[in-house]
């Protein structure tokens, strides 16, 4: 079931962050810690953008600036052309925070209903919409259970339901599989793939490269608040015309023979050992090479 095919966004810029600097002042002396360092980021409508980075790289801070939860020290963040602090801009956004916790005394249904009402859904449409999103995330049967009884994976799905209840054009998912067991993470990825299929714009942060590589159209690598690299997977990982050979089944003797064969035809000796420039390699190279 498509949650809402009409959610396909027009062809415009969903997220635009220009020159964002965010400094925090910590300790009694108020030492400055720069969390975001002149961050420029654009996410076009309809794209799935993965923001990668190690822990503490500034991913969550960037999202909080984007949603108007914190003020940037410098720079400007816009959602569909409006400042993130503008509530009209936030009407078009659904947000799933990292490791979300919700009002534990509510049932799943009551919680989604609460968020739907906050987003201005009227009674006439609220009930149907709440039931639809709960069924869509697979919580239809658990909807009357108290949130306090939900597992980690169920909480993530409930978080997705509350983010979707008002049918937003943009979904911001902060580490959507963090702390979830492999089965739960797989469920969550399946849901995100379905959202992608609906053509929604998604900005997600993660440090799980395989997941990002699997679903994202574009990727940005963030470290110490700086955007080290940004581009489509194709640009970053390599040409789509390249062919990849899986040599896992060859024995050591066969590998030696293949190596000799390649050298004899003038290919460099490192051809076999260099391997393809996959995302994790790019990520590790860039992050390791980022000066403090």
């Amino acid at each position: 079931m498509a949650l809402n095919p009409s959610a396909r966004a027009p062809d415009r810029c969903a997220v635009e962050m220009r020159g964002i600097v965010k400094d925090f002042f910590v300790g009694l002396r108020g030492s400055r810690v720069r969390a975001l360092d002149h961050l420029d980021l654009r996410v076009a409508a309809g794209q799935i953008f993965g923001l990668l980075g190690p822990n503490g790289s500034g991913k969550s801070t960037a999202i909080r600036v984007l949603l108007g939860l914190i003020q940037p020290t410098r720079g400007e963040a816009r959602l569909f052309g409006l400042p993130g602090t503008d509530i009209h801009a936030r009407r078009a956004v659904g947000y799933l925070p990292e490791s979300p916790r919700f009002h534990e005394y509510l049932s799943g249904r009551e919680l989604v209903r609460f968020h739907g009402r906050l987003c201005g859904l009227q009674r006439a449409s609220l009930h149907a919409r709440v039931e639809a999103v709960l069924a869509w995330v697979g919580l239809g049967e658990a909807a009357d259970r108290r949130v306090e009884a939900y597992s980690r994976g169920m909480l993530q799905r409930l978080g997705l339901a509350q983010a979707l209840v008002h049918d937003p054009m943009l979904l911001v998912l902060d580490e959507p599989t963090a702390g979830v067991d492999p089965a739960g993470a797989a469920d969550m990825m399946a849901l995100i793939r379905r959202l992608k299929a609906e053509g929604r714009t998604i900005l997600l942060t993660s440090h799980l490269l395989g997941q990002v590589e699997e679903i994202c159209d574009r990727v940005g690598i963030l470290d110490r608040g700086r955007l080290l690299l940004e581009g489509s997977l194709q640009e970053l990982v390599g040409d789509a015309d390249h062919r990849w050979l899986n040599l896992g089944s060859l024995s050591a003797v066969e590998l030696d023979e293949l190596h000799s064969w390649l050298v004899a035809r003038g290919h460099p000796a490192a051809t076999l050992s260099a391997g393809p420039a996959r995302l994790d390699r790019i990520y590790l190279n860039r992050v390791a090479g980022n000066p403090p």
Binding site: R64, L67, R90, V93, P97, P100, H103, L118, C119
Partner: peptide, 12 residues
Amino acid sequence: TRTAQTILAKPV
């Protein structure tokens, strides 16, 4: 519990 984040990311 960061429920404030979820609420304030809504049109509130």
